[in-house]
Amino acid sequence: MAQCQWIENTYSVTSWTADLPTSVILCPSGGPQVWNTGTMDWFYVTGATTQDPPWRMLFANLCSNQWEITGPVWSYTASAGDAIYNYDNCQLEQGKEVFWDYSGGVVVDTAERDLVRDEGPGYHVTNYFWWKVVHNQGGGGVG
């Protein structure tokens, strides 16, 4: 009886950086603003609809982790009309592995797993927290 053998057939990971917004603070009146921001980073594996073959679960357990990242406390004295945008500059990855089950030299089954989480990228690691204040110009924009 031929031995079942799962072999990775294709593997691809795409990686990019993004500035994901986390919150916006509108300042209708002038005054002090004190705030901080945070986000959840993760490296998580999902995608298989069953736990078979067993390595799916092993891989998920090995790689599943997430941790909350908290940024510093910022303060800023706003003018009326200012807007403060908070961003999470992060590294994202999304990937897919496809496996073939060879049995007796013949492909009898296929499986794949995605590096995804909540239909989003499967890997999210924060590089920087970024706050951007758009200063009210009183008379509005120019140009």
Binding site: W74, Y128, V134, H135, Q137, G143
Partner: peptide
């Protein structure tokens, strides 16, 4: 795994046209 911190002050507006 300690993120950095950046700040921008955007105060020059440009509207197209």
């Amino acid at each position: 795994h300690k993120p950095g911190s950046f700040r921008s002050d955007l105060f020059i507006a440009f509207q197209g046209g």
